[in-house]
């Protein structure tokens, strides 16, 4: 069961997973310019990771992705989000004040803290969603555990 799916699925996944990841990163980075943003991009990233999990099976995936590391990054990203908000208090006096220069409209590096927040949200959503699905898939639903 840990061996994953057939060679066809594995090969296709190996090629496409990078494209999906790239697309997710694109959506996250352009969150302040186009529809999308941290959540939508994060979901795309999570789906890419889930593709790997489905195609290659559990043991191979977790050689590639370290689980405790993922958990740490996931809770750290929530803390980082709060830290950005707190920096707003430090610089501008209010929580989540946009303290970085807004730049000019339609540029990738503009809108102050928004791209940073989008990246943090993307990371958080991707890892949380992946971990949630993984935890739910781990649960045993066989007989023998009845109370």
């Amino acid at each position: 069961m840990n061996s994953g799916m057939t060679i066809i699925v594995k090969t296709v996944t190996r090629i496409t997973v990078w494209m999906i990841l790239l697309y997710g990163i694109y959506i996250i980075l352009h969150g302040h310019l186009t529809p999308g943003g941290g959540f939508a991009g994060g979901v795309v990233l999570a789906l890419a990771l889930l593709n790997v999990l489905l195609a290659y099976g559990r043991s191979y995936t977790f050689q590639w992705l370290r689980l405790p590391w993922l958990e740490h990054v996931e809770s750290a990203s929530a803390l980082l989000y709060l830290v950005v908000g707190l920096l707003g208090i430090l610089w501008g006096g209010t929580f989540f004040y946009n303290f970085i220069s807004k730049g000019s409209l339609y540029h990738l590096l503009s809108a102050g803290t928004l791209p940073i927040l989008n990246i943090i949200i993307g990371l958080k959503v991707a890892l949380s969603l992946f971990l949630v699905v993984w935890v739910l898939a781990e649960a045993r639903t066989s007989k023998g555990d009845a109370a």
Partner: peptide, 12 residues
Amino acid sequence: IIPLCTAFLITF
């Protein structure tokens, strides 16, 4: 901020 920070610090 304080309870949210504490919650995530605990998990971290």
